[in-house]
Amino acid sequence: MTRFCQGDSRAFDALFQRYARPIHGYLARLTGSPAAAEDLSQQTFLSMVRGRGRFQEGARVKPWLYAIATNAARDWQRRKRPEDLTDEGELPTSVAVEEPGPRDAGLERAVQRALEQLPEGQRIPIVLHRFEGMGFAEIAESMGLTESAVKVRAHRGYARLRELLATLREETNG
């Protein structure tokens, strides 16, 4: 990161190779749109270059990069047409186009529907934790929250997911 901050394009390349796919996948999960994810990935790395003077020495790259990606997705959400948002005015969480063949299409859909129903404040920590493999300290750094606040959100989010999944299963079976 230090070499990148000094303008070394090979260092940028190394960062891009390492994070491009995960960031693209994360953005696809957040936006539900492969086209938007592609565009937002480009914006994320462009912002990383433009804003590298804002990177604080000693900070971790991954949470910083995911914070940029989350901000880019939120900005996209703010400028999006209202009909493309969820009922709560938040980012939809659809990954149907991006995912490989589902293990169980019904379960997959139920999980996605349950995730969609979570408030964004709970969904982002869960996506970062479960799908991006980030620890709570990293998520806290990325979201600008305390670690305990992130844990409370994730705890509530996972518990709520289970309730939502139970309800969805009942609906499916009923």
Binding site: Q42, V49, R50, E98, V111, R130, F131, A159, R160, L165
Partner: peptide, 30 residues
Amino acid sequence: ALVEGFDALEPVEAPAMKVAVPARALEELA
């Protein structure tokens, strides 16, 4: 509830997609 919620979400591997190198970012860096 937490553990069951966590287990319900099996992580899905991101698809092997090719993300184009952001040309504008490289130009900006240069």
